[in-house]
Design a protein around this nucleic acid. Structure first.
Lengths: 249, 249
DNA sequence: GATTTTCCTGCAAGTTTTTGCGGTATTCTA
DNA sequence: TAGAATACCGCAAAAACTTGCAGGAAAATC
């Protein structure tokens, strides 16, 4: 990997997360911590970031870092993304939904990993295109609102011909008896198609959404291979899910 | 292979991949790394790319994320976009390709216009989603490199069921006798399908690309309803096109 | 058509950049 | 304040770069 390329990646990560530790960067980019420190020093000298003991912070001057999306529970999402990361293995064919957690997940991916990814999210596709060994397929269809994902019959049609190893998607609501639900029929049908098109599925779910029920049924919980959430297993509400056979990450 | 020819290939590769190593270019173009370095140095001096230790990166100078041939034709692209703008009318169904000119065009659109747009460009789709009265459909398929457009059989399949009023696309090469051509088979076939799926088509073409011939045939010129370019009509080379029945905007 | 001139390319020698590592200093944390 | 984590420094090897040069191709000139 070229030095400048690596430094650009560091800048992107910092723009995304506002902070980063040298050790993490070293592991992620597969270079020594010394090299990372040298990079950080150069970037700091150029005024792009602020270097601190242990890593670096986003430059307080740039308004860029404040544009953080919504007031969503960022830290929790980060935790979930990190939990799911090891499930993504070299050379897999993966279907990815859109959403903030999944965008985090993508930013954690090893830049040299080789994958084939089908996604209905414009933002996820946009980011993955920069991975040189990832083949990206965008699932065509009507794009709904701000989430920037395509939904509906076209997506479902295209998924019919896909047989993926893994489907990674964000869960809007999950309930032990009712199953997975959403508040939009098209999106619900699309997610169902995604799950069906893959051998295994991992649902990413903020704990606040566990137990919630929304109008449109996606599937029952037993179609879900794994559930990734940020709370420890003991949490009461999860027990009925575990009894239903849901595995946790 | 001529030097200039080789440098153009280097530019295209960088425009597509956003980065390249000298060693790769050397192997691919079958010349020594020294020659590649000399090429990169010249291109960097012309401001077309950014040379770095080990290879080169796309030029970050240009405001938009797509880097075409240097910064020169930006003004011309603006002119073309402005010429085409009046052709887009309320309530039309439009197929849009990707490319810098088209991105300009989108940024000129009236924010309240009502349209239905099919596009294979992630960037175009991303921008159009913010228009409240525009229905955006992304054409699914494999995303090719840096241009961030989907191509190939999936796109073509999806277009089969579309019947649009207008197709707006960027022309890579046009020649009065040979017709429209491109340097990538998948893209060529995709563009052909786009043109076929619409009643009328407008090709956006920088004048420097008029008269050029590339390996893959898209269609003959008579499938083109209008050609939009930045030079006045008197220009010599255009006459043979006019005689072939091409209309100019 | 022959000759001169200019340009292009690959090679070799020497220089610079990049990177990881060991050793040491500094900073953080309990 | 001790121990751990982090940072810095200098060094060495590998990779990449620069430069000058020579053979050969292309273009210009006569």
């Amino acid at each position: 990997m070229l030095k400048e390329e690596r430094q650009n990646m560091i800048l992107e990560i910092i723009a995304d997360r506002n902070k980063i530790r040298s050790a993490e960067l070293s592991a992620h980019l597969k270079v020594s911590e010394d090299t990372i420190r040298r990079d950080l020093r150069e970037l700091a000298e150029g005024g792009f970031i602020k270097k601190v003991h242990g890593g670096a912070l986003a430059n307080p001057k740039t308004p860029e870092s404040i544009h953080r999306r919504g007031s969503a529970p960022l830290a929790e999402m980060q935790v979930i993304a990190e939990k799911v990361l090891p499930s993504i293995k070299e050379n897999q064919v993966i279907i990815m939904d859109g959403g903030v957690i999944i965008e985090h997940l993508v930013s954690l991916l090893n830049p040299d990993i080789s994958l084939t990814v089908f996604t209905n999210s414009i933002l996820v596709a946009d980011r993955l295109v920069d991975f040189s060994s990832v083949e990206v397929y965008i699932l065509g269809g009507k794009i709904a609102g701000r989430r920037r994902v395509s939904n509906g019959i076209d997506v479902i049609n295209m998924l019919q011909e896909v047989n993926a190893d893994l489907c990674i998607f964000e869960i809007s609501s999950i309930h032990a008896d009712i199953g997975l639900t959403g508040n939009n029929r098209d999106i619900a049908l699309t997610q169902k198609a995604m799950i069906t098109a893959a051998n295994h599925s991992i649902g990413l779910c903020l704990s606040e959404r566990i137990g919630r029920i929304q109008p449109f049924r996606i599937t029952t919980v037993n179609y879900l291979s794994y559930l990734a959430t940020e709370v420890p297993k003991e949490s009461g509400m999860l027990h009925s899910l575990i009894q239903k056979g849901v595995h946790f990450i």
